[in-house]
Amino acid sequence: MEIRQIKAETVTETVKKLFMDCNYFIGKDIMTALKKSFENETSPVGKSVLSQIIENDKIAANEEIPLCQDTGMAILFVEYGDKVVIEDGSFEDAVNEGVRQAYCDGYLRKSVVSDPVFDRINTKDNTPAIIHTKIVSGNSIKITAGGKGFGSENMSAIKMITPSYGIEGVKQFILDTVRTAGPNPCPPIVVGVGIGGTFERAAQLAKQATFRSIDSSNTDPRYASLERELLEEINKMGFGPAGLGGNTTALGVNIETSPTHIAGMPVAVNICCHAARHASATI
């Protein structure tokens, strides 16, 4: 395969469009799940909340404005082909320029502060982005981008469970995390779970799980079954839409896994609000 040159500008334009699109247009998977939940919700308040969320998402798409004011921190999962060379610049700079243009030109909220503890000064362009890059063989770049709000991000958790706890330990930690989050992360939520790997790999897999469409399942039927079981258990908790009571607390549970150490079984739970925003493109 020949080396392919891609202009930095092409990366920037692609990233810009992905962040604007995902903030204006909710995915079909989420809209379908919201409508189905509306049909099945037994709480009158819950039903009313769901109908307002559906209306909100339609307004945002029609008017091309953000569906939520928290347009999030910019996160990208990149599959970078090893035969790609970026012309006139660096890949990282091109991505951050795309984020800057999306948030400044697209009327998205700038929610990033430069230093977490001392300064907390807004960077005013929502950079830097969080970029997860995987080098793959090939001559293209696949980018999956999403804005992640922090109402739900703050409700996420990780635990270094050990093997003897088994599947029951995994389930308990996931359900405890969702129960503790309760009404705060803007239910109905999407629950991303990462199991295995190391401390940081589990967390990354959990985030990646929230970026997978909720109408898909884990390819391993055992985990696919666990996804369905957890969704059912979470919807028995009663928090409901906006946490005001009802049987729609979650729209989906996505699990991603990785090989791990003989001594470990890390579990990370990344909670996402109903505004589960992500979009993909391949250059």
Partner: peptide, 19 residues
């Protein structure tokens, strides 16, 4: 609330509640 910026022609930007 921490609103998103208003698009031209809008009085305010999207403005939902925060936790």
């Amino acid at each position: 609330v921490g609103p998103a910026p208003a698009k031209p022609g809008y009085a305010v930007g999207p403005a939902g509640p925060t936790s």
